[in-house]
């Protein structure tokens, strides 16, 4: 029983970070309508920023969080202006190739600048542990979970309380109507894309503490984020966290209870996704 609860706890903590990365993806997909293959590269940006600030000035990654958020927002905004806006009306596949090209550029620029080496930071709390009775909670994963939850709640409030947020949701639900209602779609797109990148940047800082910074750190998470966004329903922002939770729990349960499960985690993750997608498409009829 203890092991079971601990496993659930492990899954829950992981779901936080997954949801943070996936929410950004869902934003750019739902609001702007862009499948962004370069989402993971914004995450990488945050991770490297955190590494550099730590390595050069010993800056605590917690302090880098805000900076990475802002920097990734700026890069996301620039990307929107320079690259995304010209192809807003282009076929979906063209947009995909564009963002794929961008991802190749950013990943290899990082490779040129930093090499393929894995880089790590060392804040004092990195391996700190909280014990709750018989349960163990890593302070960093727990903190990352709280931060993710906080950011997502803020976002939720933004969407339900503020005019701009409501406008964004309107755009997400219907691409034509906002224009009729006099909502400036341009600005909404820019904000959404920047925000998506900023969330990834913040997640990148967290991952630099939990894992590492490297040119490919974003790849695995983008892949899983796509899965989560698809499970939630493309563009459905509210569904992201439950979807992340389902997949993270499936992963945690398999790797805890199936002998040799570590090697099956990926397969289970995608099997769950596959069945869910197929199941939903059947029910829809």
């Amino acid at each position: 029983m203890e092991l079971f609860l601990q496993t659930l706890l492990n899954g829950l903590l992981m779901a936080g970070v997954y949801a943070l990365v996936a929410t950004g993806l869902a934003l750019s997909l739902g609001v702007v309508g862009i499948v962004n293959f370069a989402h993971g590269e914004f995450l990488m940006l945050g991770a490297y920023l955190s590494y550099l600030l730590f390595a050069l000035w010993g800056l605590d990654p917690l302090l880098s969080l805000g900076l990475a958020f802002a920097a990734a927002f700026a890069v996301g905004g620039l990307t929107y202006y320079g690259l995304i806006r010209p192809v807003l009306k282009a076929p979906e596949l063209n947009q995909m190739l564009l963002t794929f090209g961008l991802s190749v550029i950013l990943q290899n620029l990082a490779l040129l600048l930093f090499g393929a080496d894995t880089r790590v930071v060392a804040p004092p709390y990195q391996a700190a542990t909280l014990t709750l009775g018989p349960f163990f909670l890593g302070a960093v994963p727990f903190g990352a979970f709280l931060l993710s939850a906080g950011l997502l709640l803020l976002l939720q409030a933004f969407f339900t309380r503020s005019r701009l947020g409501l406008a964004m949701r309107a755009v997400a639900q219907n691409r034509l109507a906002p224009g009729l209602l006099g909502i400036e779609a341009e600005g909404v797109y820019l904000l959404a894309f920047g925000l998506a990148a900023a969330l990834a940047g913040a997640a990148g800082v967290m991952l630099s503490v939990m894992l590492y910074a490297s040119p490919t750190v974003g790849f695995l998470f983008t892949l899983k984020s796509f899965a989560i966004v698809a499970l939630a329903g493309l563009g459905n922002l509210k569904g992201v966290f439950p979807a992340a939770l389902v997949l993270a729990l499936a992963e945690a349960l398999v790797s805890t209870y199936v002998p040799g499960g570590g090697g099956w985690v990926e397969a289970v993750f995608f099997l769950v996704l596959f069945l869910a997608l197929v199941g939903r498409s059947r029910r829809a009829l």
Binding site: A267, L271, L273, L277
Partner: peptide, 28 residues
């Protein structure tokens, strides 16, 4: 046959998932 009713990006993600499962099988 299984993913017949999925379109566009949904089909893309389902086929991605399918291919990841196959790869794990080849591995195991």
């Amino acid at each position: 046959a299984v993913a017949l009713r999925l379109h566009g990006l949904y089909f893309a993600i389902a086929s991605l998932a399918f291919s990841e499962v196959l790869r794990t099988l080849a591995l195991k």
